[in-house]
Amino acid sequence: MEILHLEGAEDTPKIILDKNNGIFEISGRSLPEDCAEFYQPILDWIGEYAEDANGDTNFVFKLEYFNTASSKLILDILSKLEDIPNISISWYFHEDDEDMEEAGEEFSELVEIPFEFKTY
């Protein structure tokens, strides 16, 4: 499966989705003008990956900031990931960023996926 790799910008996150190397990561800042358009290729990639997923999948969110429109799309991503067997989420937050920690906790309450919380 093709690797989806997007370099981050000041308003869009860095994305690496790499099935062969088992790397699934969204990091940085997410406040694109059109969140639905930005996240569509990511949702499509995950949809395709779900049809023939690796034995285990650890999906990493290492976000510094995301706007409310992105939060809706993050929930869409998590909902799609729910269908994948042996899926887990690593939710990173800066050690003094309680809001990002709480955001992760809220997402974990909205989907049936195990979350591991880590600081950076």
Binding site: E33, D34, C35, A36, T68, A69, S71, K72
Partner: peptide, 11 residues
């Protein structure tokens, strides 16, 4: 769902 303008109604 996101509005046509792309807002989540959460701002």
């Amino acid at each position: 769902d996101l509005s046509e303008k792309g807002g989540a109604g959460l701002g």
